[in-house]
Design a protein around this nucleic acid. Structure first.
Lengths: 208, 208
DNA sequence: AATTGTGAATCTCTTCACAGCA
DNA sequence: TGCTGTGAAGAGATTCACAATT
């Protein structure tokens, strides 16, 4: 019950989303079977996952939605709003700024950086795009704990190191590059090309 | 050697990228140890992965880069360019169109759709944004096998079904929703919120 | 001397199946 | 009766360690 396995951690967001919706709809309790049907899992897996953070289920009845949601939010850290530094204000950066502005997110863009002088000084969702050279100073000053890396692959490792030096504890990396940072910094990768290649891989597979 | 395990499939893109770079740099052979160091894996894992698609290694020497790259490309399907339908032309859609235009990609945007009348008719990287009502007809006519879903979560499942009906075999889904499509359609999810939540989850974890 | 390919061991995750509780 | 929590079995992935090969 102490350590949450990686596979479970990766499913926490799915549980959170479903529970948020149920809660908003006024549903009070739900069974592992109903959860598993909604998420495309097995009921036993849901029960084992949820057992990792306490005994919430009531035999014969199910799980209490409000209580479970509270627990999941606390574990995921979505019970508060985290400041995030966005590095790279290209097309993707702009999409992310727009996305983050939606109310109710558990993070907010607290600073935006870019190396391109043509972009520095522009408005970005209520913030001014700062020059990349100010990154370490600003991230430190604002004590920003998380960063989104939306820069070209060639410079990503270098920028990641600077973020680590500035004290961030987690990086969401969109660049197709390995970030070899100190292990106190957690890296989550979103690799668009790799995801597309999974599609073409399966296209080939099925044909055979 | 016949069936490639899921875990291996997910690493194929990493191998491909590394091999592309080595090949471009004129490197002729490479050992499993050098590969594993570059990618942050174990050497034994690299050997086992590569053994899934034949015996390419030369004991005492390593793997021949050109030959291995050719094999990985064939398996991943990046030895050709796949037409892709983009559904949803918001901020993310625009970022994807820009991204796909870079030469050398193994896919190209072949059609763009949106339900918003204000967006229909606009130019999108050399294409005209079409009304979502034309989706099935156009995807069928052009025999487009893959789609990128960049629409709001509420409509994602419905659009996914239409794509399936139109005959696509793979969907890259950016919407935070489960797509319950026929199993002939492979779905790859990119869940930005879930990835961000992994960061805050680990932030909490480390503190304890 | 360097390096592969793989049996065996190990670790991790999933699923079954059922005792026990409401 | 309906449902949880979990021991035990099963499935899958990783790592070790070494005989075989160039």
């Amino acid at each position: 019950m102490r350590t949450i396995p990686k596979a479970v951690a990766n499913r926490l967001s799915l549980y959170r989303r479903l529970l948020e919706r149920l809660h908003a709809d006024g549903v009070r309790t739900i069974s592992s079977r109903a959860i598993s049907d909604s998420l495309g899992l097995k009921d036993a897996q849901v029960r084992r996952d949820l057992a990792h953070f306490g005994s919430f289920g009531q035999p014969g009845l199910g799980y209490r939605v409000a209580e479970l949601l509270g627990k999941v939010r606390t574990i995921l850290g979505t019970d508060r709003t985290w400041p995030v530094a966005l590095v790279g204000y290209g097309n993707l950066g702009r999409a992310l700024v727009a996305y983050a502005k939606v109310p109710g997110r558990s993070f907010r863009i607290a600073a935006v950086f870019d190396a391109d002088p043509a972009k520095v000084g522009r408005q970005a969702g209520g913030l001014v795009v700062r020059d990349a050279s100010e990154l370490v100073r600003q991230v430190r000053r604002q004590k920003i704990p998380l960063a989104i890396l939306a820069v070209p692959a060639e410079v990503a490792p270098k920028v990641a190191w600077r973020l680590a030096r500035a004290g961030v504890r987690g990086i969401l990396n969109f660049a197709p590059a390995r970030l070899d940072v100190p292990k106190r910094v957690f890296v989550s990768d979103i690799d668009f090309t790799a995801s597309m290649e999974q599609l073409s891989f399966h296209l080939r597979r099925r044909r055979a």
